[in-house]
Design a protein around this nucleic acid. Structure first.
Lengths: 205, 205
DNA sequence: CAGGTTTCTTGACGACTGTCAAGACTTTCT
DNA sequence: AGAAAGTCTTGACAGTCGTCAAGAAACCTG
């Protein structure tokens, strides 16, 4: 039994990977099951053997996607010993993933947007969004700790700010703007400078 | 001739309105020409009489959408005489449009996301994004002027921050969260407090 | 090797898509 | 009035879609 279920799970993961590739390439609106199958080594019928229907398939993919994303900066957070080291490491990874995984990021925004229309995605998307928020908060709060500073905004606001900056950078990047990554670094740096305030130095009177 | 072209333009606008209604309701992925026609008083064939194809139709709608959005806060900016008045008026309109026009906003995010996949939308979407950026900047720079304060971020960064906050609020609002609007007001207020700094009072040492 | 189970392919179904041409209806013009 | 131009409907086309059932192929177990 355990071997059977492992093989079954492995196939599911294989097909999920093909689905994610296709979604990242074409977007949700133009991704079909036959196209997904062509991006795998199987035929289109097998998808209904491993997944109940299209929503089940995509939901499963979104959940897998979560695990990958959420740990992106954990290494940096764990090893950085100074605020500068943490900021540099974070900005490096941020700029790198903007460039290297642009297609996956646009997929995430696509699916998050679908959840505004399709009730069925809403719960999973909200859970991932919350995970990303915690991820950002881990980075920023650790930075404040190392810098001996206080944070002037809540985790939710912090995440929204970073997400807005990243999304704008992604739009520019996908439009071919070569300065997108550098500008993102500068923007994040500037915003952090406003929002992270040294102890005993309140921002506004 | 001028009457003819007016009538033609009026029909185009009428069909464009039906298209926007449909897109706001179903999202880009599930909007078909027949569905659009059913939301108008005409049959599906007429769309190809007034528009070249589906992309032409949607592009035209996106351009019309722009004109509506971009002037949302102009009145408030023009009439507000104090920083508090401007902030109150801006926050009121912001919270109101979040609730009243949630469907149109999710459509905008949907189309902006499509531009990450479809080259054909990219130029129009980028133009609208730039207009929105200028709109935000008109509000914020006027606020700084009234308050005798300096802005610590660029227009692009400012817009990205506001957009990120608004998008998170929209997600929560569409998920049924009744506190989304109030939290958006609080978040924007908090961020502005960090980013708008009184003259001769630099933010960080 | 035979028998049964799991896995995968094939082909079909009804429904839906964008597009377009043929023609009917309406309006305008002479 | 009739002719012409503009407007709109209808129905069809070639595709594509998600889904599923029938059966082939591969695999494991006896």
């Amino acid at each position: 039994m355990p071997e059977r279920v492992d093989k079954f799970a492995a196939r599911r993961a294989e097909l999920a990977a093909a689905t994610l590739r296709t979604l990242a390439e074409l977007g949700y609106a133009r991704t079909s099951l036959r196209e997904i199958a062509q991006n795998s080594e199987f035929s289109h019928g097998v998808l209904h053997y491993y997944f109940q229907d299209k929503v089940d398939l995509i939901t499963h993919c979104v959940r897998e996607y979560k695990a990958v994303c959420v740990t992106r900066y954990d290494q940096v957070v764990a090893t950085a010993a100074t605020p500068d080291e943490l900021r540099q490491g974070f900005l490096d990874k941020l700029a790198q993933t903007l460039v290297d995984e642009a297609h996956m990021h646009r997929l995430w925004y696509d699916l998050r947007n679908q959840s505004m229309f399709e009730e069925s995605f809403r719960a999973d998307v909200a859970a991932i969004d919350a995970s990303l928020e915690r991820m950002v908060w881990r980075v920023v709060s650790r930075f404040a700790e190392l810098a001996g500073a206080r944070l002037q905004v809540t985790p939710g606001v912090m995440y929204a700010l970073f997400d807005g900056l990243f999304q704008q950078a992604l739009l520019r990047r996908l439009a071919g703007d070569p300065g997108a990554a550098d500008d993102l670094r500068a923007a994040v740096t500037a915003v952090v400078a406003q929002v992270v305030v040294l102890d005993r130095e309140p921002a506004l009177g």
